[in-house]
Design a protein around this nucleic acid. Structure first.
Length: 359
DNA sequence: AACTCGGGGGA
DNA sequence: TCCCCAGAGTT
Protein backbone atom coordinates (compact mmCIF):
# COMPACT_ATOMS: atom_id res chain seq x y z
CA UNK A 1 0.00 0.00 0.00
CA UNK A 2 1.30 3.44 -0.92
CA UNK A 3 1.70 5.78 2.00
CA UNK A 4 -0.77 8.61 2.59
CA UNK A 5 1.64 11.39 1.70
CA UNK A 6 2.77 9.45 -1.34
CA UNK A 7 -0.79 9.35 -2.68
CA UNK A 8 -1.19 13.11 -2.32
CA UNK A 9 2.28 13.71 -3.72
CA UNK A 10 1.55 11.67 -6.82
CA UNK A 11 -1.79 13.37 -7.30
CA UNK A 12 -0.21 16.81 -6.91
CA UNK A 13 2.58 15.97 -9.34
CA UNK A 14 -0.08 14.91 -11.85
CA UNK A 15 -2.05 18.09 -11.12
CA UNK A 16 0.96 20.33 -11.77
CA UNK A 17 1.20 18.96 -15.30
CA UNK A 18 -2.35 17.97 -16.24
CA UNK A 19 -4.62 19.89 -13.85
CA UNK A 20 -6.77 22.90 -14.66
CA UNK A 21 -5.07 26.13 -13.65
CA UNK A 22 -7.09 28.66 -15.60
CA UNK A 23 -10.61 28.38 -14.17
CA UNK A 24 -12.16 31.82 -13.61
CA UNK A 25 -12.58 31.33 -9.84
CA UNK A 26 -8.85 30.64 -9.51
CA UNK A 27 -7.89 34.17 -10.58
CA UNK A 28 -8.20 35.67 -8.08
CA UNK A 29 -8.98 32.86 -5.69
CA UNK A 30 -10.86 34.87 -3.07
CA UNK A 31 -13.18 33.26 -0.49
CA UNK A 32 -16.22 34.85 -2.14
CA UNK A 33 -15.33 33.56 -5.58
CA UNK A 34 -14.46 30.10 -4.26
CA UNK A 35 -17.76 29.98 -2.38
CA UNK A 36 -19.82 31.12 -5.37
CA UNK A 37 -18.10 28.61 -7.65
CA UNK A 38 -18.64 25.75 -5.21
CA UNK A 39 -22.36 26.49 -4.94
CA UNK A 40 -22.74 26.76 -8.71
CA UNK A 41 -20.80 23.55 -9.18
CA UNK A 42 -23.13 21.52 -6.99
CA UNK A 43 -24.78 19.12 -9.45
CA UNK A 44 -23.59 21.21 -12.36
CA UNK A 45 -20.61 20.70 -14.64
CA UNK A 46 -17.69 23.08 -14.99
CA UNK A 47 -18.33 23.84 -18.65
CA UNK A 48 -21.89 24.94 -17.88
CA UNK A 49 -20.94 26.98 -14.81
CA UNK A 50 -18.17 29.14 -16.31
CA UNK A 51 -20.33 31.69 -18.22
CA UNK A 52 -22.81 31.92 -15.34
CA UNK A 53 -19.97 32.48 -12.88
CA UNK A 54 -18.43 35.26 -14.91
CA UNK A 55 -21.76 37.01 -15.40
CA UNK A 56 -22.57 36.68 -11.69
CA UNK A 57 -19.31 38.08 -10.27
CA UNK A 58 -19.41 40.81 -12.86
CA UNK A 59 -22.82 41.94 -11.58
CA UNK A 60 -22.30 41.16 -7.87
CA UNK A 61 -18.60 41.27 -7.10
CA UNK A 62 -18.51 40.71 -3.36
CA UNK A 63 -20.51 39.46 -0.36
CA UNK A 64 -22.02 42.88 0.41
CA UNK A 65 -23.13 43.49 -3.17
CA UNK A 66 -24.82 40.09 -3.15
CA UNK A 67 -26.45 40.73 0.21
CA UNK A 68 -27.83 44.08 -0.98
CA UNK A 69 -29.19 42.79 -4.29
CA UNK A 70 -32.93 42.14 -4.82
CA UNK A 71 -33.89 38.47 -4.89
CA UNK A 72 -35.20 38.83 -8.44
CA UNK A 73 -31.75 39.99 -9.56
CA UNK A 74 -30.04 37.00 -7.95
CA UNK A 75 -32.55 34.59 -9.47
CA UNK A 76 -32.20 36.24 -12.88
CA UNK A 77 -28.43 35.68 -12.73
CA UNK A 78 -29.12 32.05 -11.79
CA UNK A 79 -31.84 31.52 -14.38
CA UNK A 80 -31.05 28.40 -16.41
CA UNK A 81 -28.66 26.81 -13.92
CA UNK A 82 -31.38 24.93 -12.04
CA UNK A 83 -31.66 24.01 -8.37
CA UNK A 84 -32.78 27.54 -7.54
CA UNK A 85 -32.70 26.87 -3.80
CA UNK A 86 -28.95 27.26 -4.23
CA UNK A 87 -29.44 30.88 -5.31
CA UNK A 88 -31.90 31.66 -2.53
CA UNK A 89 -29.61 30.07 0.06
CA UNK A 90 -26.58 31.90 -1.36
CA UNK A 91 -28.42 35.19 -1.07
CA UNK A 92 -29.57 34.52 2.49
CA UNK A 93 -26.10 33.35 3.49
CA UNK A 94 -24.55 36.55 2.16
CA UNK A 95 -26.95 38.59 4.27
CA UNK A 96 -26.04 36.53 7.32
CA UNK A 97 -22.34 37.09 6.62
CA UNK A 98 -22.98 40.82 6.71
CA UNK A 99 -24.87 40.52 9.99
CA UNK A 100 -22.56 38.10 11.78
CA UNK A 101 -19.16 38.19 10.10
CA UNK A 102 -18.57 41.79 9.07
CA UNK A 103 -19.35 41.06 5.42
CA UNK A 104 -16.84 38.24 5.12
CA UNK A 105 -17.07 34.48 4.84
CA UNK A 106 -16.06 32.92 8.20
CA UNK A 107 -12.86 30.87 8.31
CA UNK A 108 -14.44 28.30 10.57
CA UNK A 109 -16.04 24.94 9.81
CA UNK A 110 -19.02 25.22 12.14
CA UNK A 111 -19.72 28.83 11.17
CA UNK A 112 -19.70 27.83 7.51
CA UNK A 113 -21.97 24.83 8.14
CA UNK A 114 -24.41 27.18 9.88
CA UNK A 115 -24.88 29.10 6.63
CA UNK A 116 -27.71 27.94 4.34
CA UNK A 117 -26.54 25.97 1.31
CA UNK A 118 -23.18 24.98 2.79
CA UNK A 119 -22.75 21.35 3.82
CA UNK A 120 -19.67 19.45 4.86
CA UNK A 121 -18.18 19.04 1.40
CA UNK A 122 -18.69 22.64 0.33
CA UNK A 123 -17.34 23.90 3.66
CA UNK A 124 -14.26 21.72 3.20
CA UNK A 125 -13.78 23.00 -0.34
CA UNK A 126 -14.00 26.62 0.81
CA UNK A 127 -11.64 26.20 3.75
CA UNK A 128 -9.05 24.28 1.79
CA UNK A 129 -9.17 26.33 -1.39
CA UNK A 130 -9.55 29.81 0.06
CA UNK A 131 -7.20 29.43 3.01
CA UNK A 132 -5.31 26.17 2.61
CA UNK A 133 -6.87 24.69 5.74
CA UNK A 134 -6.80 20.87 6.07
CA UNK A 135 -10.39 19.75 5.42
CA UNK A 136 -11.48 17.01 3.02
CA UNK A 137 -14.19 17.18 0.40
CA UNK A 138 -16.49 14.46 -0.85
CA UNK A 139 -18.16 15.42 -4.09
CA UNK A 140 -19.18 13.15 -6.92
CA UNK A 141 -15.63 13.01 -8.30
CA UNK A 142 -14.03 12.09 -4.99
CA UNK A 143 -16.71 9.51 -4.26
CA UNK A 144 -15.97 7.82 -7.58
CA UNK A 145 -12.19 7.92 -7.11
CA UNK A 146 -12.29 6.56 -3.57
CA UNK A 147 -14.93 3.93 -4.32
CA UNK A 148 -12.56 2.58 -6.97
CA UNK A 149 -9.34 2.97 -5.04
CA UNK A 150 -10.79 1.05 -2.09
CA UNK A 151 -13.24 -1.12 -4.05
CA UNK A 152 -16.18 0.09 -1.97
CA UNK A 153 -19.39 -1.62 -3.08
CA UNK A 154 -22.74 0.17 -2.79
CA UNK A 155 -24.30 3.36 -4.10
CA UNK A 156 -22.09 6.20 -2.75
CA UNK A 157 -25.09 8.37 -1.79
CA UNK A 158 -26.22 5.69 0.63
CA UNK A 159 -25.48 7.01 4.14
CA UNK A 160 -23.54 3.95 5.22
CA UNK A 161 -21.33 4.06 2.13
CA UNK A 162 -20.91 7.81 2.31
CA UNK A 163 -19.69 7.50 5.89
CA UNK A 164 -17.02 5.03 4.80
CA UNK A 165 -15.90 7.35 2.02
CA UNK A 166 -15.61 10.33 4.37
CA UNK A 167 -13.41 8.24 6.66
CA UNK A 168 -11.15 7.31 3.74
CA UNK A 169 -10.98 10.92 2.58
CA UNK A 170 -9.85 11.94 6.07
CA UNK A 171 -7.00 9.46 6.11
CA UNK A 172 -5.67 10.58 2.73
CA UNK A 173 -5.47 14.28 3.60
CA UNK A 174 -1.93 15.66 3.15
CA UNK A 175 -0.10 18.17 5.34
CA UNK A 176 0.67 20.73 2.68
CA UNK A 177 -0.76 22.30 -0.50
CA UNK A 178 -4.37 21.77 0.62
CA UNK A 179 -5.84 24.14 -1.95
CA UNK A 180 -4.07 22.38 -4.79
CA UNK A 181 -4.89 18.98 -3.33
CA UNK A 182 -8.61 19.76 -3.35
CA UNK A 183 -8.47 21.04 -6.92
CA UNK A 184 -6.30 18.09 -7.94
CA UNK A 185 -8.87 15.56 -6.75
CA UNK A 186 -11.66 17.25 -8.68
CA UNK A 187 -9.58 17.57 -11.85
CA UNK A 188 -8.41 14.00 -11.49
CA UNK A 189 -11.97 12.72 -11.20
CA UNK A 190 -13.30 14.96 -13.94
CA UNK A 191 -10.63 14.31 -16.56
CA UNK A 192 -8.82 11.00 -15.81
CA UNK A 193 -10.78 8.83 -13.37
CA UNK A 194 -13.98 9.46 -15.32
CA UNK A 195 -17.22 7.50 -15.04
CA UNK A 196 -16.81 5.99 -18.48
CA UNK A 197 -13.51 4.94 -20.05
CA UNK A 198 -11.13 6.12 -17.31
CA UNK A 199 -7.51 6.44 -18.39
CA UNK A 200 -6.20 3.83 -15.96
CA UNK A 201 -3.00 3.20 -17.92
CA UNK A 202 -2.03 6.85 -17.51
CA UNK A 203 -3.15 7.03 -13.89
CA UNK A 204 -0.49 8.21 -11.41
CA UNK A 205 -1.99 6.14 -8.59
CA UNK A 206 -3.13 3.02 -10.45
CA UNK A 207 -0.78 0.66 -8.57
CA UNK A 208 -2.71 1.53 -5.44
CA UNK A 209 -6.20 1.09 -6.91
CA UNK A 210 -8.17 -1.95 -5.72
CA UNK A 211 -10.73 -1.72 -8.52
CA UNK A 212 -7.93 -1.62 -11.11
CA UNK A 213 -6.20 -4.59 -9.52
CA UNK A 214 -9.46 -6.55 -9.48
CA UNK A 215 -10.54 -5.52 -12.98
CA UNK A 216 -13.67 -3.88 -11.55
CA UNK A 217 -13.14 -0.28 -12.61
CA UNK A 218 -16.12 -0.39 -14.96
CA UNK A 219 -18.54 -1.56 -12.27
CA UNK A 220 -17.50 0.90 -9.55
CA UNK A 221 -18.90 3.04 -8.15
CA UNK A 222 -22.18 1.16 -7.87
CA UNK A 223 -24.83 3.10 -9.87
CA UNK A 224 -27.95 4.58 -8.35
CA UNK A 225 -30.84 2.12 -8.08
CA UNK A 226 -33.18 2.76 -10.99
CA UNK A 227 -36.88 3.37 -10.72
CA UNK A 228 -39.55 4.56 -13.14
CA UNK A 229 -40.36 8.25 -13.08
CA UNK A 230 -44.01 9.30 -12.67
CA UNK A 231 -45.41 11.72 -15.24
CA UNK A 232 -47.44 14.84 -14.48
CA UNK A 233 -49.37 17.16 -16.79
CA UNK A 234 -50.57 20.73 -16.58
CA UNK A 235 -51.81 23.55 -18.79
CA UNK A 236 -50.07 26.89 -19.20
CA UNK A 237 -51.71 30.23 -19.98
CA UNK A 238 -49.70 32.30 -22.41
CA UNK A 239 -51.51 35.65 -22.43
CA UNK A 240 -50.07 38.21 -24.80
CA UNK A 241 -51.24 41.75 -25.35
CA UNK A 242 -51.21 43.75 -28.57
CA UNK A 243 -47.72 45.06 -27.78
CA UNK A 244 -46.29 41.58 -27.31
CA UNK A 245 -46.09 41.72 -23.54
CA UNK A 246 -46.80 38.47 -21.70
CA UNK A 247 -48.42 37.87 -18.32
CA UNK A 248 -46.09 36.23 -15.81
CA UNK A 249 -46.90 34.89 -12.38
CA UNK A 250 -44.46 34.64 -9.50
CA UNK A 251 -44.44 31.11 -8.15
CA UNK A 252 -44.86 30.30 -4.45
CA UNK A 253 -41.78 30.48 -2.18
CA UNK A 254 -41.53 26.69 -1.86
CA UNK A 255 -41.68 23.73 -4.23
CA UNK A 256 -40.70 23.41 -7.87
CA UNK A 257 -39.30 26.63 -9.37
CA UNK A 258 -39.85 28.44 -6.09
CA UNK A 259 -39.97 32.26 -6.33
CA UNK A 260 -39.34 32.18 -10.07
CA UNK A 261 -41.50 33.96 -12.64
CA UNK A 262 -43.45 31.56 -14.84
CA UNK A 263 -46.66 31.39 -16.83
CA UNK A 264 -49.95 30.95 -14.93
CA UNK A 265 -50.53 27.22 -14.60
CA UNK A 266 -53.67 25.11 -14.26
CA UNK A 267 -54.40 21.42 -13.87
CA UNK A 268 -56.00 21.17 -17.31
CA UNK A 269 -57.38 23.28 -20.16
CA UNK A 270 -60.82 23.71 -18.59
CA UNK A 271 -59.31 25.00 -15.38
CA UNK A 272 -57.06 27.29 -17.42
CA UNK A 273 -60.17 28.94 -18.88
CA UNK A 274 -61.65 29.08 -15.37
CA UNK A 275 -58.52 30.89 -14.26
CA UNK A 276 -58.96 33.38 -17.06
CA UNK A 277 -62.61 34.06 -16.15
CA UNK A 278 -61.63 34.49 -12.53
CA UNK A 279 -58.71 36.85 -13.03
CA UNK A 280 -59.81 38.71 -16.15
CA UNK A 281 -63.59 39.05 -16.32
CA UNK A 282 -63.17 42.04 -18.61
CA UNK A 283 -61.47 39.89 -21.19
CA UNK A 284 -64.48 37.73 -21.77
CA UNK A 285 -65.86 40.26 -24.21
CA UNK A 286 -62.51 41.01 -25.77
CA UNK A 287 -61.38 37.52 -26.74
CA UNK A 288 -62.79 34.20 -27.64
CA UNK A 289 -61.97 32.26 -24.51
CA UNK A 290 -62.64 28.87 -25.97
CA UNK A 291 -60.37 29.06 -28.98
CA UNK A 292 -56.83 29.78 -27.89
CA UNK A 293 -53.92 28.84 -30.12
CA UNK A 294 -52.64 25.48 -29.00
CA UNK A 295 -48.83 25.42 -28.78
CA UNK A 296 -46.49 22.45 -28.83
CA UNK A 297 -46.29 20.84 -25.37
CA UNK A 298 -43.20 21.46 -23.27
CA UNK A 299 -41.56 18.29 -21.98
CA UNK A 300 -39.36 18.73 -18.94
CA UNK A 301 -37.57 16.18 -16.80
CA UNK A 302 -36.92 16.54 -13.09
CA UNK A 303 -35.08 14.20 -10.79
CA UNK A 304 -38.27 12.58 -9.53
CA UNK A 305 -40.87 13.06 -12.25
CA UNK A 306 -41.50 14.15 -15.81
CA UNK A 307 -43.60 17.19 -16.49
CA UNK A 308 -45.63 17.78 -19.65
CA UNK A 309 -46.92 21.33 -20.02
CA UNK A 310 -49.54 22.18 -22.65
CA UNK A 311 -49.49 25.93 -23.44
CA UNK A 312 -52.64 27.76 -24.52
CA UNK A 313 -51.94 31.01 -26.31
CA UNK A 314 -54.29 34.00 -26.35
CA UNK A 315 -52.82 36.93 -28.27
CA UNK A 316 -53.83 40.47 -29.11
CA UNK A 317 -55.39 41.14 -25.73
CA UNK A 318 -56.29 44.78 -25.03
CA UNK A 319 -53.16 46.45 -23.75
CA UNK A 320 -55.09 48.66 -21.38
CA UNK A 321 -56.56 45.71 -19.58
CA UNK A 322 -55.03 44.87 -16.24
CA UNK A 323 -55.25 41.28 -15.05
CA UNK A 324 -54.84 40.58 -11.38
CA UNK A 325 -54.64 42.82 -8.41
CA UNK A 326 -51.38 41.91 -6.67
CA UNK A 327 -47.66 41.89 -7.33
CA UNK A 328 -47.58 38.20 -8.13
CA UNK A 329 -48.95 38.93 -11.60
CA UNK A 330 -47.09 41.12 -14.02
CA UNK A 331 -47.17 42.03 -17.70
CA UNK A 332 -43.62 41.73 -18.99
CA UNK A 333 -42.13 42.97 -22.25
CA UNK A 334 -39.83 40.70 -24.25
CA UNK A 335 -36.72 42.70 -23.44
CA UNK A 336 -37.49 42.53 -19.73
CA UNK A 337 -37.33 38.74 -19.64
CA UNK A 338 -33.58 38.75 -19.10
CA UNK A 339 -33.96 40.63 -15.82
CA UNK A 340 -36.16 37.97 -14.20
CA UNK A 341 -35.58 34.46 -12.92
CA UNK A 342 -37.51 32.23 -15.32
CA UNK A 343 -37.38 28.40 -15.56
CA UNK A 344 -35.37 27.29 -18.59
CA UNK A 345 -38.20 25.52 -20.44
CA UNK A 346 -40.54 28.49 -19.90
CA UNK A 347 -37.90 30.88 -21.18
CA UNK A 348 -37.47 28.71 -24.25
CA UNK A 349 -41.21 28.68 -24.79
CA UNK A 350 -41.42 32.46 -24.54
CA UNK A 351 -38.53 33.10 -26.89
CA UNK A 352 -39.45 30.46 -29.46
CA UNK A 353 -43.10 29.36 -29.16
CA UNK A 354 -43.98 26.54 -31.48
CA UNK A 355 -47.44 25.94 -32.84
CA UNK A 356 -48.79 22.45 -32.35
CA UNK A 357 -49.31 20.43 -35.48
CA UNK A 358 -52.81 19.28 -36.23
CA UNK A 359 -53.54 15.83 -34.91
C1' DA B 1 -33.26 7.02 5.74
C1' DA B 2 -36.07 8.76 2.23
C1' DC B 3 -37.52 12.48 -0.28
C1' DT B 4 -37.12 17.14 -2.54
C1' DC B 5 -35.07 20.26 -5.41
C1' DG B 6 -33.25 21.60 -12.53
C1' DG B 7 -30.78 21.54 -16.23
C1' DG B 8 -27.30 20.26 -19.47
C1' DG B 9 -24.24 17.09 -21.62
C1' DG B 10 -22.21 12.69 -22.88
C1' DA B 11 -22.50 7.83 -24.16
C1' DT C 1 -32.97 7.34 -24.42
C1' DC C 2 -30.52 6.90 -19.92
C1' DC C 3 -27.32 8.34 -16.57
C1' DC C 4 -24.42 11.49 -14.28
C1' DC C 5 -22.67 15.85 -12.40
C1' DA C 6 -17.69 20.37 -7.57
C1' DG C 7 -24.93 18.38 -2.67
C1' DA C 8 -27.85 20.32 0.71
C1' DG C 9 -32.31 20.89 3.11
C1' DT C 10 -36.42 18.93 4.89
C1' DT C 11 -39.24 15.49 6.94
Amino acid sequence: MIARTDYAARLLAWFDVHGRHDLPWQHPRTPYRVWLSEIMLQQTQVRVVIPYFERFVDALSDVRALADAPQDTVLALWSGLGYYARARNLHAAAQRCVELHDGDLPRDLDALLALPGIGRSTAGAILSQAWGDPFPILDGNVKRVLARRHAVDGWPAQPKIEKQLWAIAETLLPDTRLADYTQAQMDFGATLCTRHNPACLLCPVNEDCAAFAQGRVDELPTPRPTKALPEREASLLLLEDAKGRVLLEKRPPTGIWAALWSLPQAEDDARAVDWLRMHAPGLIDAVDLDTPQRLLPVQHGFTHFKLRLRPLHWSGLPARHRVGDNDRLRWVARDELATLGIPAPIRTLLLAPRIALED
